[in-house]
């Protein structure tokens, strides 16, 4: 099964490309201090330097800061926030979804109403409001993003639990006298890991987009250089200096694309039947 899975994943060109992109982004994020030892906030050259001029790969911004350095350091913030908020959202979503799906009944009704509500309200506006009110910081951003991201996962997990719960192997576990916790964690959860992993990888992508949108509006962590902030602060000079907006935005595009490709690759590898249908 594991070998089949790896094989299926490796045969998917998109997934491998995604893995390569995300791997490169992680490397750049880890090596940012080696590649660009100076702070990305410091002036490195003349303002409005074009790409490749003065040895600056991506040029400089209106304060003469090195854009390449900003992009490299920005990768850290994006990945950190993407991962942290996804972990938090997955924890909330899996827990609520599992409880709702396993116990059913009124509890399920109640939890699902609650979840539906969180899915309906305008996500991004809520994130903006929360971050603005609690002042932007890594923590407030992660919490806000997690708070608006868990709902779809909770629904997904709940659906899986609901269908697996009535599956005969779960009923057999009940007739064999196993407890609720054993059944939830040992019998059911391992059987819905694949959809959870797939949506988690897509959630990292969405979280990165959300974070970049926040910092574009000026609601990023003021101490961390981030891609969205770079695009946001450069947009007023778009006419004179396209590169200031272009490179950080392109970095977001690549990272998110890579994560989505990985997510789809995982999905295809987990569901061989679907994969065949797709190719059919």
């Amino acid at each position: 099964m594991n070998r089949d899975f790896l094989h299926a994943f490796a045969r998917n060109k998109g997934a491998v490309l995604g893995l390569a992109i995300v791997g490169a982004v992680i490397l750049v994020a880890l090596a940012a201090d080696l590649l660009f030892p100076a702070s990305p906030w410091e002036m490195a050259g003349a303002p409005f330097g074009r790409p490749l001029a003065d040895g600056m790969l991506m040029g400089t911004d209106m304060l003469g800061r090195d854009i390449a350095s900003g992009v490299a350091h920005g990768a850290r913030v994006s990945l950190l926030i993407g991962l942290a908020s996804t972990l938090a959202a997955v924890a909330i979503g899996v827990l609520l979804g599992a409880v709702a799906g396993y116990y059913g009944g009124r509890l399920d009704d109640l939890l699902m109403r609650f979840t539906e509500l969180f899915q309906t309200i305008p996500n991004f506006v809520l994130v903006v409001v929360i971050v603005a009110i609690f002042t932007p910081s890594l923590v407030s951003i992660v919490v806000a993003i997690a708070l608006v991201s868990w709902a779809p996962l909770a629904r997904l997990v709940r659906g899986e639990f609901l269908s697996l719960r009535s599956r005969e192997f779960v009923q057999a576990a009940i007739t064999c006298g196993q407890g609720d916790a054993t059944i939830i964690f040992r019998q059911i959860l391992p059987n819905c890991m694949s959809p959870i992993i797939v949506s988690a990888s897509l959630m990292v992508a969405t979280a990165i987009l959300l974070e970049s949108s926040l910092s574009f509006l000026g609601l990023g962590d003021p101490n961390a250089m981030s891609w969205g902030f770079m695009v946001g602060s450069a947009r007023t000079v778009l006419r004179q200096a396209w590169w200031m907006c272009f490179f950080p935005g392109f970095a977001i595009l690549l990272t998110v694309l890579g994560l989505n490709l990985i997510g789809e690759g995982l999905n295809d590898a987990f569901n061989p039947r679907l994969r065949r249908k797709r190719k059919a």
């Binding site: 005969e168 192997f169 009923q171 007739t175 019998q187 059987n191």
Partner: peptide, 25 residues
């Protein structure tokens, strides 16, 4: 009181070994 179920493809947890499945009860 024990039960044998209808669907041979749904009545065994695909993630557990056969030995575990029989020993779990």
């Amino acid at each position: 009181v024990q039960m044998v179920f209808q669907d041979p493809y749904a009545s065994l947890n695909p993630r557990h070994t056969v030995g575990d499945i029989v020993a779990q009860g």
